[in-house]
Design a protein around this nucleic acid. Structure first.
Lengths: 123, 123
DNA sequence: GCCGAGGTACGAGAACCATCGTAGGACACG
DNA sequence: CGTGTCCTACGATGGTTCTCGTACCTCGGC
């Protein structure tokens, strides 16, 4: 085998053809997972699981990352003991053009709407 | 009260400010509900619940329409005994620009991909 | 070879959800 | 007023999901 490459342990990912729209929408409909995806989209590079500060335990974090991976939203690769996460932008874009960007924009708009009502409406 | 208008019984809808992205995505992540929304989008006018042919019983149909209504995706109004359904396009568009159209396009693409593999790949 | 840090597997429990059947309310039409 | 159609309410049930704690594994470095 001439290809140990960067990965050490195997991680099952769905192929592009296996990705289902309902699965993607469901994966994105959880607040924790949506925040993960938003942070991944904002970062220019892959992020380790340990980088994220989430309001759940480590076990639950693993669970959410698996849901995202099995839905085809993120790709995960081992790098030593740490696991790197990356959005599958190209796959999602070719399957559902514009979907990811639109959802990310919507999530940003909602975050701004909920967290920063700011001035002019109520004291 | 000078406004009996077209509605007879009251139906609770979330205001625009109450609509949450996660709720919308969750509402759209069910195949039955997604097919409802697709049909509503294709039709140029409001459709009665009884118009839809779904693989579930009437009770379950009621449930799905309620989920869509409470998520802010559809607006329902009574017209005699029948209930008319309409997409809340304007509200969704102003909250999450492009989201509905993108999801509908993606749903159409996926339907074409899954139902019509057609020629060239496998007999 | 051993330890620590990052992650996982395995239960396990609570909550939620989709589904159904049956009973019942609201309206139109006679 | 009675009857039928459309839809709803109310359980009830089985499945999925979110959450956790604990024990375990894998890798890198000492």
């Amino acid at each position: 085998m001439p290809e140990p490459a960067a990965t050490t342990r195997p991680l099952a990912h769905p192929g592009s053809a296996e990705i289902r729209l309902e699965g993607v929408l469901h994966a994105l409909s959880d607040p924790v997972r949506l925040s993960i995806v938003r942070e991944l989209a904002a970062a220019a590079e892959e992020l380790a699981c340990s980088h994220f500060v989430l309001p759940v335990t480590k076990s639950t974090t693993t669970h959410h990352f698996r849901v995202l991976r099995e839905a085809g939203v993120v790709r995960q690769t081992y790098r030593g003991t740490t696991k790197l996460n990356d959005l599958r932008r190209a796959d999602l874009e070719s399957l559902f053009p514009g979907l990811l960007d639109t959802v990310l924009t919507a999530a940003g708009a909602e975050a701004a709407r909920l967290n920063v009502p700011a001035a002019g409406v109520r004291p």
